[in-house]
Design a protein around this nucleic acid. Structure first.
Length: 286
DNA sequence: ATCCAGGCATGCA
DNA sequence: TGCATGCCTGGA
């Protein structure tokens, strides 16, 4: 058992429901969450607004793993101050208070975001759950059955056709390709962030947005500012006078506005925008 | 019933 | 470099 204390607020519901991660679930309205982390199942109990209690079926190295996962080294208050650049961002920061970025397993996270393209959160969750159930190892923890996320070797012989049968559509090809070629870039030494970004994009099925998500959510590179349709709507409306600009320019704009904390800014904006859809009617663009 | 989602690759100006 | 189009599926 590990206890994590956060000087700032930690909000488990915002953190696990904001859409950054897909395989953690709560059966009690957010009091506790269960999910697979690497080789084990962890249970997260929110003791108070600052404290998480973590337990697991496997305690070796648990403290190190959860400290990495919950990014306990981030200076959250500095981050909030830093991206609080105007009245709008003040509202966004306030609305998202307690939402923390997580540092996910890179194999699972990459697959999650490859499957996310032109999809939606319920469907992504279902796709990942199916993968776990079909190919992941079963673990019983506190009398419930959970599934670890399948390893590369669990998936290496699964065909594109079998992924299509799971309803992955055209993403099946990308997924098959990713699994086949995974170690080609994994084995590389750590490179310059933008060079690694390009390497990720050299994998068929991974473009700018997915590459940014992988770096942000799985490689701890929190200066990345992935631009999806929500980010596009928000940034054009509030930071470009409603005039359309390319996603590439929006990515640069995010980076210049929010600097090294751009990843947090992105997740906060995403969370805010998705929960205020009336501001961003998809028919009013262009 | 259309339309369009948390994109990507491709082909064409 | 920028824009249009097809791609699978499934919810609204």
């Amino acid at each position: 058992m590990v206890e994590l204390f956060f000087f700032e607020i930690f909000d488990a519901v915002k953190t696990f429901e904001c859409g950054q991660i897909f395989r953690f679930e709560s059966n009690d309205s957010g009091k506790t969450y269960f999910g697979a982390l690497e080789d084990r199942i962890i249970k997260i109990t929110q003791k108070d607004p600052h404290t998480l209690i973590i337990s697991s079926n496997k305690n070796s190295n648990l403290e190190k793993i959860v400290n990495s996962f919950f990014r306990t080294n981030d200076n959250y208050l500095d981050m909030q101050k830093s991206i609080n650049i105007d009245d709008l961002m003040k509202k966004v920061v306030n609305y998202s208070n307690g939402l923390h970025l997580l540092n996910q397993d890179n194999f699972e996270c990459s697959i999650s975001y490859i499957l996310s393209q032109c999809s939606n959160i319920p469907r992504i969750k279902r796709n990942l759950k199916d993968l776990g159930k079909l190919y992941g190892k079963s673990v019983i923890f506190e009398d419930q059955e959970f599934f670890l996320f399948p390893s590369r070797s669990d998936l290496i012989n699964v065909t594109e056709e079998e992924f299509r049968d799971l309803g992955f559509g055209y993403r099946a090809k990308y997924l098959r390709n990713f699994i086949k070629n995974y170690p080609i870039f994994l084995g590389e030494p750590v490179l310059d962030s933008e060079i690694f970004n390009q390497k990720l994009q050299n994998i068929e099925g991974i473009g700018q947005k997915v590459a940014d998500c992988i770096q942000l959510f799985a490689y701890g590179d929190i200066s990345h500012f992935p631009v999806d349709t929500w980010m596009e709507k928000f940034m054009i409306k509030f930071y470009n006078d409603g005039k359309k600009i390319s996603k590439k320019n929006i990515r640069e704009l995010g980076s210049s506005l929010f600097g090294k904390w751009a990843g947090y800014a992105q997740e906060f904006i995403y969370y805010y925008a998705r929960n205020h859809p009336q501001f961003f009617s998809s028919k009013s663009k262009k």
